[in-house]
C-alpha cells in the first residue's frame, strides 16, 4: 500500500524520526504530511508559529497569505520575523524562515488581502486552512468560504491573556457561524488601548492550531470539532464547550441565507 511511496532520504528519516516513531503517525502519516497542502491565513502572531511548526513537520506545500510588512511592534510575538526583517513583506520573511528550517518543503507566499472576490479561488488549492487573521471580517469570510468550498479549517482568536480555537469540517461539524452567528457590532470590538496581548499567548494558540492541522492530515487523535477550546493563561484554565451544528446557521444550516460572499466592514486596528 505504501510500498511505492516510501522514498524518504536518510536525512529525511532522521528529520522526521520523532514523527515516524509515533504509533499514530508513523511512516504513513509522514507521507501524508509530505503530500499535504495547507494554507495559512495571516503571517502574524498565530500564523508565525503555525508556519514554523508546519514547515518543521514537513508539510509538503504551505501557502501563506498576508499583505503587511514587518514592523517593530510585531516582534514581541510574531516569532518568524526578526529585527533585520523590518520593512520586508511578512510572507517573504516567513518563507525565508520556513525554508531555513526545512528546505524540502514548498512555500507559496501570497502577498495580498483576502477578500470576497478572491478567497474561494485561493483556498481551493488546499487540503486544510489555518485562519490566524486579526479581525472578525476575515474570520467570518474564511468560515463562509471554507464551508462553501468544503475545506476543513482551524480558526483561532486571541485577546489579552485569552485564546480560543475550533476546528471545522464543513458538512460534519459546527462552523464558526454556528457558534457566533454574526460579527459583533463594530463599536463593541475592543479598542486599541484595551487590546494588548501577551506575546506567548499567540504561541500557545498558534501551536494548538498547528497541532490540529497535523492531526487532521495524519488522522491522529480527535479534533476540536464541535468544540470551542478556550484558555485563560492568567490562571492557566483550559475549558471546552461542546457545540453542535445549528439548523438555522446562515451558512451551513438547512436553508443557508448566505449565497454569495460579502466583505464586512473592517473595524479598529489589528490586534
Amino acid at each position: 500500500m505504501v510500498k511505492k511511496m516510501i522514498d524518504f532520504t536518510e536525512e529525511q528519516l532522521e528529520r522526521y524520526s520523532r514523527h515516524i516513531l509515533l504509533a499514530d503517525v508513523g511512516v504513513e502519516g509522514q507521507i501524508r504530511l509530505s503530500s499535504a497542502r495547507v494554507l495559512i491565513i495571516g503571517a502574524g502572531g498565530l500564523g508565525a508559529p503555525v508556519a514554523l511548526y508546519l514547515a518543521a513537520a514537513g508539510v509538503g506545500t504551505i501557502g501563506i497569505v498576508d499583505n503587511d510588512i514587518v514592523e517593530v511592534s510585531n516582534l514581541q510575538r510574531q516569532v518568524c520575523h526578526f529585527h533585520n526583517n523590518i520593512g520586508k513583506a511578512k510572507v517573504e520573511s516567513a518563507r525565508e524562515k520556513m525554508k531555513a528550517i526545512n528546505p524540502d518543503i514548498t512555500v507559496i507566499p501570497l502577498e495580498k488581502y483576502l477578500v470576497a472576490d478572491n478567497i474561494r479561488e485561493i483556498i481551493r488549492d488546499y487540503d486544510f486552512v489555518v485562519e490566524g487573521s486579526d479581525n472578525f471580517p476575515t474570520k467570518f469570510l474564511v468560515n463562509d468560504a471554507c464551508v462553501m468550498e468544503s475545506i476543513p479549517f482551524s480558526i483561532g482568536g486571541i485577546l489579552r491573556f485569552d485564546g480560543q480555537a475550533m476546528t471545522i469540517v464543513p458538512g460534519e461539524s459546527a462552523c464558526y457561524r454556528c457558534a457566533f452567528r454574526n460579527p459583533p457590532p463594530p463599536d463593541a470590538v475592543p479598542s486599541c488601548s484595551e487590546a494588548g496581548v501577551l506575546g506567548a499567548i499567540a504561541g500557545m494558540l498558534g501551536t494548538i492550531q498547528a497541532a490540529e492541522t497535523l492531526k487532521f492530515i495524519t488522522g491522529a487523535g480527535s479534533l476540536l470539532t464541535d468544540t470551542l477550546l478556550s484558555f485563560d493563561a492568567k490562571n492557566m484554565d483550559f475549558h471546552k464547550v461542546r457545540l453542535q451544528r445549528q439548523d438555522d446557521c446562515a451558512i451551513c444550516g438547512k436553508e443557508p441565507s448566505i449565497r454569495t460572499l460579502v466583505d464586512y466592514e473592517q473595524t479598529t486596528c489589528g490586534i
Partner: peptide, 15 residues
C-alpha cells in the same frame, strides 16, 4: 531510536 525508525520503515513496506 533510529533503529526503530528503520524497522518501522521496513514494516511499512510489508503486508
Amino acid at each position: 531510536p533510529m533503529n526503530m525508525v528503520y524497522t518501522k520503515v521496513e514494516l511499512a513496506k510489508l503486508s
